[in-house]
């Protein structure tokens, strides 16, 4: 395998890592500034965030997700993730290198690990992606009641255009994480808590889950703008 391919494999692995608040890839957000491979297949990933102040718990999540995603490649010997230009870079980099829990990396400042936070953001990603897909399907003129009644197998067999198929793939990626043991007959569009959506409550339900998209959109916009300014200052 050529080094250039290896580099591509790493970037591809990093694509699957998202910023939890924005629900977009750390690569498309331009957070990853450099990837290096040494002779013994050691990997070094450098990343920066839009501000010196970005929340360290989110930074920690992203850094450990990057480490884990790249470590899955069987030829990779070891992974170093390095956050730069951040007020708690040192603690985060050390914690991620030692595979510590967040609470051990920041002793005394928190009494919980990040499982609950991960779960919360998974729920937001679920709602955000579900809303995008539902709106797309309704926009095609599909009857809301029959859409809400779809099973996983039905959703998979829907003929969709490129955009629709991409939205479905994004949704199902999160859906599978939250339904690890579900079979093909499972309902495709339940609430995050797992209850079916009554078509009569559809309007209120869509209003509610639109909140996840708006939060993510605000973060995405602010982060992109600030990162562009910050990167510009350094040039």
């Amino acid at each position: 395998m050529q080094p250039s391919n290896r580099l591509e494999q790493i970037w591809l692995a990093l694509e699957s890592v998202t910023d939890p608040e924005i629900d977009e890839s750390v690569v498309s957000l331009d957070f990853v500034s450099e990837v290096k491979i040494d002779e013994s297949n050691g990997i070094e990933i450098e990343f920066r965030l839009p501000t010196y102040w970005c929340a360290p718990n989110f930074a920690f999540l992203m850094a450990s997700d990057m480490r884990d995603a790249v470590s899955e490649l069987d030829w990779v010997a070891d992974v170093t993730v390095r956050l730069v230009d951040h007020f708690s870079a040192e603690l985060i980099n050390r914690g991620v290198a030692r595979k510590q829990d967040f609470r051990d990396a920041f002793p005394g400042e928190t009494d919980d690990d990040l499982c609950a936070l991960r779960q919360k953001f998974l729920g937001q990603a679920y709602e955000r992606r579900q809303e995008l897909l539902l709106k797309h399907l309704f926009g095609l003129g599909s009857d809301p009641t029959s859409i809400l009644g779809l099973r996983l197998s039905d959703l998979l067999s829907l003929a969709l255009d490129q955009q629709g198929a991409a939205l479905r793939a994004l949704y199902l990626f999160v859906w599978r994480k939250s339904h690890p043991n579900a079979g093909k007959e499972a309902m495709a569009f339940t609430t995050w808590e797992g209850t079916p959506v009554d078509p009569r409550d559809l309007k209120d339900y869509l209003r509610k889950i639109a909140g996840a998209r708006r939060n993510a959109a605000f973060n995405g916009f602010i982060c992109r703008s600030l990162l562009a300014e910050r990167a510009g200052d350094k040039r």
């Binding site: 608040e21 400042e109 928190t110």
Partner: peptide
Amino acid sequence: PTIRPLNKD
């Protein structure tokens, strides 16, 4: 906008 919350936001 977030500046510095840990998980105690």
